[in-house]
Write a protein that binds this DNA or RNA. Structure first.
Length: 581
DNA sequence: GCCGTTTTCGGCCCGACTGTTTTCAGTCG
């Protein structure tokens, strides 16, 4: 699938055009890049099916970009892009990551000083060659060096799962201040993106100065970047930056909308405003100088003729068109989960007993928890063999009887997370699989197989009538390991045809399926399960991260089997074919 | 270069900040 490669190339072309000072074209290429990056279908498939005409039907793709896509698909290169790279052989990607450096400055530094890499940029600044240039100065040179230092130290974006607990702690402290009327997070955190750059807070307060003082002296603050009357910016010892803005109550909604983003969503909204003779900014929606809407987000959306759009959808991935057409999904809610189907007990490498897990599940208000212990191939996790699985089942039966006797509407379900071997076989015999309420199967070995083999391996597993769920289907570990080489279209098609459920794994490093894949699966009518993969009961709380991704993937209750009652859930799983038992 | 429930030509997102300039370009979010 070439979508991401093409998106990257068009994004770079946009930067090159920006360098040349070309007007408007960069915007067009940028838009095409964003559309391609978010496109569900393989662009090559679109081309094979409907040719240039099909490509041009993609929003933001016209005659010129369509022919460039064609050129790339047929020859592997785009001459227009190669020409730019030849003329301006700059590592743009690296250089514009330096705060304050953009394409224009990069071009000047290349032409005057021959700077093409981050190292050369640093060298030029250190030897004071930049300050004397026209349009630059001492301060710019200093800032470049500081920004490069920051880049070297920073680890890039943080996992949502690392940041949300920290942000919730700060939020609670701000909420507790008597001077604070209202406070909320904004930005990518509020949209539940899988990784977060920095954290934004917005607050209403009659005494902003006191709130600022409190914010910059929070425990864990190691540096105050800036502190003014209504805005402060700090760094925490974890290396994370946080911003706080105090907003007047009358424009809080417009500010919350604005600072929640995404940028692309906001741009699209402002266009709608313009079409209606209105102007949208962080201060409100204006007709001339009169504010039409500003105090709440709902008001802003309604004044634009749209229903409220939940933050998780605000990525300019079609949510505005859906809102206009009255076809926004009724997203699964954070309270809709009725159980967790992927929990490891101390029968395998997990930390807690079945009774402890059941008690934790009841505290969460769950109706069921599925015990999905590892199976025998996974020695390192003390995976269970057939005999151990059956013994564990007896204990689950015993516990369930005691819950029933106590009048509790809670039960443990008997499952396992079996291993999909290199040939697609499952490491537990069918007779035992058939005695479980559900079977999850996942890949835990041989990660480096080629695309055909890996796809065939998963297809074989899904065709097994005992396999109900595939865990962490793509295998990616954020910032550490890429997806397995798989043909996801084939996987999705077979999942649909065999009625196999795909997991949305809530581990912050996994979030697998991710938001875009969840959306593709949903559109194909594939059912999913949001699971924590908890190895200790504290991790049952990871559910929120999977839920966030499910919402970002437009999932509704009907798409997520553990938002259903235990009866509906069990009925929806595959039945072993007759004669297989 | 793309696009059109006003448009096939004339538009294309907004405001603030910074550092450099004597009125503004570049960058950022």
């Amino acid at each position: 699938m070439k979508n991401q490669e093409l998106a990257r190339i068009f994004g770079e072309i946009a930067e090159y055009l920006e360098m040349e000072g070309v007007r408007f074209k960069p915007y067009a290429y940028q838009k095409a890049a964003l559309t391609l990056a978010a496109l569900q279908e393989d662009v090559g498939e679109v081309y094979r099916r409907s040719g240039l005409k099909g490509l041009r039907a993609i929003p933001g793709v016209g005659e010129s970009i369509a022919s460039k896509i064609e050129e790339y698909l047929t020859s592997g290169k785009i001459a227009y892009y190669e020409e730019f790279k030849r003329k301006l052989p700059i590592d743009l990607d690296a250089i514009i990551r330096v705060e304050g450096m953009g394409p224009k400055k990069a071009k000047v530094l290349y032409e005057k000083l021959g700077v093409t890499t981050l190292e050369e940029l640093e060298e030029a600044a250190r030897s004071h060659k930049i300050a004397p240039l026209f349009g630059f100065g001492d301060k710019t040179e200093e800032n470049i060096l500081e920004a490069i230092e920051f880049l070297k130290r920073s680890t890039g974006r943080f996992l949502l799962g690392e940041i949300l607990p920290i942000a919730q702690g700060v939020l609670a402290k701000l909420e507790a201040l008597p001077e604070v009327t209202t406070v909320s997070t904004a930005g990518s955190l509020r949209r539940m993106k899988e990784t977060i750059g920095d954290v934004d807070f917005l607050a209403i307060s009659a005494e902003p100065a006191k709130v600022m003082d409190f914010f910059v002296s929070l425990p864990g603050v190691v540096k105050v970047w800036g502190k003014g009357g209504t805005k402060a910016s700090v760094r925490l010892q974890q290396g994370l930056d946080m911003d706080l803005r105090v907003i007047p109550a009358q424009s809080y909604g417009a500010a919350l909308q604005y600072f929640t983003g995404s940028k692309e969503h906001n741009i699209a909204l402002r266009k709608i405003a313009l079409d209606q003779g209105l102007k949208l900014s962080e201060y409100g929606l204006f007709k001339g100088s009169e504010a039409v809407a500003a105090t709440s987000e709902e008001e802003v959306y309604h004044a634009l003729g749209l229903p409220y759009i939940p933050p998780e959808l605000r990525e300019d991935r079609g949510e505005i068109a859906a809102a206009r057409a009255g076809r926004l999904p009724a997203l699964i809610g954070y309270q809709d989960i009725r159980g967790d189907l992927h929990v490891h007990s101390d029968w395998d490498g997990g930390a807690n007993s079945l009774a402890e897990i059941a008690a934790a599940g009841q505290r969460l208000g769950y109706e069921y928890i599925g015990i999905a212990d590892h199976t025998k191939f996974l020695k390192i996790e003390r995976g269970l063999d057939e005999e151990a699985l059956l013994a564990r089942n007896l204990e689950i039966d015993r516990l369930n009887r005691s819950f029933e006797k106590a009048g509790l509407s809670f039960r443990l379900l008997k499952g396992c997370e079996a291993n999909i071997m290199a040939d697609g076989a499952i490491d537990i015999v069918d007779e035992v699989l058939a005695q479980l309420d559900f079977v999850i199967a996942g890949i835990h070995s041989h990660f480096k197989m080629n695309r055909e083999q890996m796809t065939a391996r998963l297809v074989t597993a899904m065709q097994n009538p005992h396999v109900d769920i595939i865990s962490h289907p793509t295998g990616r570990i954020i910032k550490r390991r890429d997806e397995y080489a798989i043909d996801l279209e084939t996987i999705l098609t077979v999942a649909r045809d065999t009625g196999t459920v795909l997991e949305i794994n809530s581990y912050p490093e996994r979030l697998d399926l991710n938001d875009l894949n969840i959306r593709r699966a949903k559109e194909m009518g594939i059912r999913m399960v949001i699971s924590t993969d908890a190895h200790q009961i504290d991790q049952l709380n990871l559910m929120i991260y999977g839920l966030g991704q499910a919402r970002r993937g437009w999932a509704e209750k009907a798409d997520i089997i553990n938002a259903w009652s235990v009866t509906d859930l069990l009925q929806s799983l595959k039945k072993p074919a007759a004669g297989q038992l």
